[in-house]
Design a protein around this nucleic acid. Structure first.
Length: 351
DNA sequence: GAAAATGATTAAAC
DNA sequence: GTTTAATCATTTTC
């Protein structure tokens, strides 16, 4: 501890000779002329600053006040700020990397597009829900699922906004607190406004990285919600009995070639009151049904034999009644009897 | 509650 | 683009 005064004098001397701006500052701020007197002044100030922590609170307060009023104080602080700026802060400044704005923008855009953030609900959220409901292609009870979806979306929005607000408030409070602290400290140690600004930036970056995490998890929550809602497999509905009968009737009466054309599919979909798929011009549901039926029939003809006989008999009866009335055939192709081995069946029965 | 049935999805082949 | 074959996920049946 005995070294301190010597050290401070040495510092002051180095400051004088090593920093070209110091004498200038002092000239500017004090107008002093006596070189030795100035050295003595600076040495005194520095010594007082360094020993201030060793003193009692009252003493220190008094000393702080005296220092603040010292005529050399502004000049000395300016120089020290300059030195700090040119060494530590400039190095640190150079190392500061670019903030990941791109990702933040991506998240912001997504939240905006999905209606989680932004002005008010009704835009993206409703559109997404409507699209989801439409592509799910369901009928009766989609209203409840729809509102369920909307309620959950609102919940996500609410959590997001309250959390965001909390973070913003905390950020502001913390920034104000730190700024006040630094301003207060700048009375006793050299802190430039630039340094305060830099500190504020650091705080903002930290908080915005937290906000980014919030945005990320909100996006994830929304994606999960939507995928649940959109996943058609989760909301599979069996066709009603009538629809199944219509499809089976077509299938067994076209066993030689159970591949309905686009028109036939649309016709069948209409007959079965199946809403058209959003995926294209074909009725995907009918295509799915025929795809499944073909493969399952082919895999186990025996199991479907009884069903085949029933439908064959039914079509035979209707064909007979039609011919009995002398009408023309209203079927695009000749119905097959279940006993017949059809062309289509031939292709896989004979391996 | 397990098994069967069934609609949807997928990759691969055409 | 469609179809097949395998598979998944749900609903229905027992």
């Amino acid at each position: 501890m005995d070294d301190q005064p010597r050290l401070m004098h040495a510092h002051a001397a180095v400051g004088m000779s090593g920093h070209p701006g110091l004498s200038q500052h002092i000239q500017d701020n004090t107008g002093a002329t006596d070189g030795d007197g100035r050295k003595q002044d600076i040495g005194d100030i520095l010594q007082q600053i360094m020993t201030i922590t060793d003193q009692s609170l009252d003493e220190a307060q008094a000393r702080k006040h005296a220092l603040n009023c010292h005529r050399m104080k502004p000049a000395l602080f300016n120089v020290l700020c300059d030195v700090k700026e040119k060494t530590v802060l400039s190095i640190r400044g150079a190392q500061e990397e670019e903030s990941p704005d791109a990702q933040l923008m991506r998240l912001d855009n997504m939240l905006l597009a999905e209606g989680v953030s932004g002005p008010e609900k009704g835009g993206g959220a409703a559109a997404a829900a409507a699209a989801a409901a439409a592509s799910a292609g369901v009928g009766a009870d989609n209203a409840t699922e729809h509102s369920d979806y909307r309620a959950k979306l609102t919940q996500i929005r609410q959590i997001y906004h309250t959390e965001l607000e909390k973070y913003e408030q905390a950020c502001n409070e913390f920034t104000t607190h730190v700024m006040n602290l630094l301003r207060e400290q700048s009375r006793t140690r050299p802190i430039s406004p630039k340094e305060i600004e830099r500190m504020v930036n650091i705080i903002h970056r930290k908080f915005s990285s937290i906000q980014m995490q919030l945005k990320q998890s909100t996006c994830e929550a929304f994606m999960i919600l939507r995928s649940r809602f959109l996943d058609a497999r989760r909301k599979r509905r069996n066709f009603n009995k009538q629809a199944t009968e219509i499809l089976n009737e077509y299938f067994y009466s076209h066993l030689s070639n159970p591949y309905p054309s686009e028109e036939a599919k649309e016709e069948l979909a209409k007959k079965c009151s199946i809403t058209m798929s959003q995926h294209g011009t074909t009725c995907l549901l009918v295509s799915n049904w025929f795809g499944n039926k073909r493969i399952r029939y082919k895999k186990n003809i025996g199991k479907f034999q009884e069903e085949a006989n029933i439908y064959a008999a039914r079509t035979a009866v209707s064909a007979a009644s039609v011919s009995a009335h002398g009408s023309q055939t209203n079927s695009p192709s000749t119905p097959n009897s279940a006993a017949d081995v059809t062309l289509w069946e031939m292709s896989f029965v004979s391996k």
